[in-house]
Amino acid sequence: MEILVYLVPLALLLGGAGLAAFLWSLRSGQYDDLDGAAWRAIADDDPPPQEAPAEMAKARR
């Protein structure tokens, strides 16, 4: 049963780390836009240049 000396603090530490991570995610606004975040995950990071309206807008100017 000496194993408890390691396991109990370890369990509490992991639990505490999880809670800290949750509080951090809450503070950094990760729950502010749940609908948008769901879509952002699958959005392309770098759109192909010919489709990018950003590029076209720059070219027009």
């Binding site: 948008g36 952002r40 959005a43 759109p47 990018a52 309206p53 950003a54 590029e55 807008a57 720059k58």
Partner: peptide, 10 residues
Amino acid sequence: MAKIERGLSA
């Protein structure tokens, strides 16, 4: 979302 963000960032 993508259209607006790109359009405004430009």
